[in-house]
Design a protein around this nucleic acid. Sequence first.
DNA 1: AATCCAGTATGCAGTGACTGCAGTTTGGCT
DNA 2: AGCCAAACTGCAGTCACTGCATACTGGATT
Lengths: 214, 214
Amino acid sequence: MSRTDAPRARSGAPTSRGTATARRIESSAVALVLQHGYDATTVDMICADAGISQRTFFNHFATKDAAVIGTDVPRLDESRVRAFIAASGPNLLADAAELIALPGLDGAMDPQLMRLRMRAISSSAELMQRQLERFASIEAELAEVIEYRLARLSTPDESAAEVREQSRLTAHLLAGILRYSADALMSGDSASVPAIVAQTRDRLTALLPKLAGR
Amino acid sequence: MSRTDAPRARSGAPTSRGTATARRIESSAVALVLQHGYDATTVDMICADAGISQRTFFNHFATKDAAVIGTDVPRLDESRVRAFIAASGPNLLADAAELIALPGLDGAMDPQLMRLRMRAISSSAELMQRQLERFASIEAELAEVIEYRLARLSTPDESAAEVREQSRLTAHLLAGILRYSADALMSGDSASVPAIVAQTRDRLTALLPKLAGR
DNA sequence: AATCCAGTATGCAGTGACTGCAGTTTGGCT
DNA sequence: AGCCAAACTGCAGTCACTGCATACTGGATT
């Protein structure tokens, strides 16, 4: 019934990452969306362009938008997580922002398709929305990691439950930062991901003291 | 084509707020979702329960989820906006969080339906998501208001453009706070809206110094 | 009282995303 | 050659949603 949370596919639950067919579908989808816009691009059009049947399309991608934005989910970079927990720099938020390993940055994907995909996503408010929703998927995990750092900063009068809530709140703040970065990345003309991340970090460092009062 | 951004309806663009039919549809929708879950509740079921045709349903609500979560959008409370701009308290974020006038709190709605609606929304991840998306609709407005306050706190080396970007970043942070509050409100068993807002404010006040370092 | 009109409700046919099922092709392996 | 699992396909069906053309309603106008 729901269109967005459909189960993967049926039997093999193909990861889509890697199979030639999935790649063809993805590049057709991105190209057509860039050409006609997301709403005007039907699944049938993508199938025709990729030379496959509609059923095959849905064997690879659970939804139409998955074919455009990709199936990889942002993850926490384990090695960085350990470093983050051990560290104790003053700027927890900025540190945490670097925990997230954006998919597609690990070089496993064609950078050309990557660039087109980003343009396609930013051309549609709906796709952008879906893209941002993905950040929410790691928020719980993020809150847990943050809790380790935050526990060391807690005052004696704060219960463990309170620290946990503060961690969850921090994770939500972080999601806001990520949304801001994604926004800047997509709407800005050029600018690489590392550049945007660094810029946001600086901006945040300047901003936080103003928000926290003195 | 898109399911989520459909234009209101055709001629009169009914506000849905107030008409008896719209109210019947809303309460049928909420009741059925509570009973069967969102995905298992079809538009036809709601129509049958409310005693209207499907076409009439879509004359009142642009989408199925609109009938459950309501059509009112959060707005900035104008009188509070003026107070916010004039004030200069140390806790800008917490101040800003009170700018938002949540719909349904102005007493114009049946509190009983309000409570059922909240339970219905929190019973489905998809609905919750849609609900949270609405906060994004006022982010631009919010950033503009924040800019007034932030401009007074800027250092000489910061350009107007930089202040604007910091304001946008702040608006995104605020959206995170709102999401956290909404989450707490929905998942918590009881707790009134003002109580949650106050609690979040306190929590934020305790948290911010930790995040900004000293 | 007859007329008119705007607002609202409806039936119907169509589009587009998505699913389940049942059957076929394909390529590697024995 | 024969076999098997993975991948592909057609098809029929469900559900959200739209456009259009057509009623029904109650009150304001003449």
